[in-house]
Design a protein around this nucleic acid. Sequence first.
DNA 1: GCTACTCGGGG
DNA 2: GTGTACGAGTAGC
Length: 878
Amino acid sequence: MEIQILDVDYTMVDNKPIVRFFGRNKEGESVCCFYSGPLPYFYAGGKDAEDILKKEGFVYEKSGMKVAINPDAPLSLFRVWLNDPSKTPDIRDKLKSLGLDVYEADIPFKNRVMCDLDFSGMGWLDVQGNIINTESVSASRSVQAKEIKRTEKDENAQFKMLAMDIETLMDSGKMDMKSNTIIIVSFVFSHPYNGKRSMVLSTRNGDGVNYYENEKAMLEGVKNIINGFDPDFITGYNINAFDLPSIIARMEKYKLRPVFGRCRQKRAFVKKVSAREKVYVPGRVVIDAYEIVKKDFSMPRYDLGVVCETLLQKGKTNVKHSEIGTFYHGTKEQFGRLVEYAANDSALVMEIIERLHLMDKYIALAKISGTLLQDVLNSGETARIENLLLREFNKHGYILPCKASDREMTKREAEREGKLVGGYVIEPDKGIHSNVAVFDFKSMYPSIIETYNICPTTLVQSGNSGDVIKTPSGAMFYKKSVREGIVPKIVSNLMKERGVARKRLKSAKTPEKVRALDAEQWALKIMSNAFYGHLGYVRARIYNMDTANAVTSCGRELIKKTVEYVGKKYGYKIVYGDTDSLMVKIENGSLDEIYEIGNKIAEDVTKQLEGSLELKFEKIFKRFLPLTKKRYAAWSFDKMEAGWKDRIETKGIETVRRDWCKLVSETVGAVLEILLKGGNIKEAENHFKGVLEGLVNGKIPIQKLEITKSMTKQTKGYKGMQPHIELAKKIQKRSPSEAPKIGDRIRYVIVKGTDLLCKRAEDPAFVLEKGLKIDPKYYIDNQLLPPLERLFTSIGVSKSELLGNGKQRGLLEILNSIKESQTTLRAADVTGFVCSGCGKFFQKVPLSGCCECGAGFVFSSQGGMAREIETSAISQKQ
DNA sequence: GCTACTCGGGG
DNA sequence: GTGTACGAGTAGC
């Protein structure tokens, strides 16, 4: 039988562990595979190690393994065998107290087994054995395995997913998961369950509701339905920190065992992981859609409402939080709306995960790193890297040390302080540059690790001067011919496999295959890029400053030498570069000509490089505007199969910030667009002046002036004066019922007046209602000017030029000077952009810079004035 | 400018 | 469960 691994655990029978592999087979049945044989063990060494082990009565054997971080140390090592994994910590501590050094004595048994058998999370197994009958697990099939081996398969089994959402009564007024009553539980099934795709359970009866007499009975129902449907994945929104912990807490209150995993004995449990809670359900995988969305997408907020609008382009049925209690006790219709709301939330979460295929990446990471899917989701990069390190080091005769103690970590932090040197950043040549070729070193750090054989196992520890590679940081590494490093070997394999995956991707036929291969190549890149960081990470088992610094020192030297080479041989100026990238000013030539030159340079440079190092020509910045190190904007052109594709690219320039009003991000965006695409500084200046005029004339819609800040504590708790807090106080006095509460976001605008600035914050609705005037000076000085002044000074336009000629002039004068300066259009009048080709209306210019039809844009203004700003149909579309 | 602390999502 | 493991954004210096 072939099964795909979802989860692994063990049970003790006759004082020996039996490993259980939970998964699903090709036929779609859930399977539990029992396997005896693997025993826990770790390594011990040190003075008199053997005597001590013998005297203490341990089962042990001499081991020829070497310690990864110090392979040349003469050390007699022993493998110590145990029976019960749960007793390992005690035994480990005992041996330590007897003066022994221990290694790999902190590896969870399931990981130990997965590593030793070379199995992966979400990987496939070929299992030979007998079907058995057992009540200990809930699975369609249980197998007593005689032989198991891994097998390779791209596709996934038909996994079942359950999406759920609960509604509770917050009678205490607090989010207390122990005391709040659960009134509704909604389920959506990926596959029909008892002929249904969804269910709503409630302690109140209603249309289409599974009614339960009380909460306890409903929670019994929850257990029965989950176990009956037998999902592989349980998903929900913030399910790790709310829904499941609530369910578990309430079950415990009623003395119901929270057993809805695939082991009939083991409870689902909540584990605190660095202040966040994670829920584990044996044999199943808990997927918190909130956590995934937060990792995968960048949004200002992550409540399910905005997430659905952004990702699914649809809103969610909404019931105000304060209405939940009222509707539960309210009319039939009201209760119906509540039921609908709960059902909808589950359905939306299921849709987010399935339609956007959010699991693809995590499944690929599990397969590649060997980590169980649940651990890929719940832990970070470190867990994946160390899983991979463990199996690869072991395969090649090396063992890893235990994790560093707190004391050791503090020591490392102190040692690392200021000594871990990063990449080389070239001081940017300020101004607007035209036709800049962008190069970068392909997978720079992984390639350096591979090429220079950088690894803890190859680091020359003492003055051994043999056949070694000397890095610019001074650290020396044995050449591959002497001893190949394990980290270089892993990284090299990952990069090689990525090449294979990408090749296969090109010829992939089905969408499933394309997705899986794309996720695979992505995960391979992520993994190979993570090793450098790991070497310098204080918690890493293979932490070593000398190796980490060696990597970056090679990078710095590479980029410096390349700058020199390109400058000397070709006479081009390098206007900017950061760590692994180079911006080379070509200045003259068409896109196609620069493309030719770029590729020639890349090829030439690559020829001079050692090993797998490669310089790649990436793209062209038709215009490049560097502001400072790490901050620039560019009009970038990529050569695609269909022709050149352009876009505005910014790095480190915040276009959206919560403490800026919309007008700022819009103006920054528009000015950049004009500068980059039009290349006309005067025009950009005029645009800015137009915005100022709009402000002075009160022509800017108030929504664009709103600033949002959140109130994190009681108003009294704030020492200094802050506008949003002062506003909160005002509203408290005016209409206490609408007063902002802790955690609320407060929107405000600054109005004209003689009061202190902080006292002039006002509610936008109040401003409209009372016809108050906003304060243009505030918006100019505190909002627009800081980012825009920086932008303009970088291209040689001073503040005084921006605001007029002389020193600080009155706003009226600014206004007059604007009128004289022949602005063709006042920004305040611009309501959007209209495509000059197809006429489609856009509120904002899309990131591509042009409409889908390929044509450029014209401003659309209230007065019907229109001016073409861009006709960038550069593409050679066929 | 940098570092320390907080809070996210959920009813 | 042989594990302790975030991270962006803001407040405060």
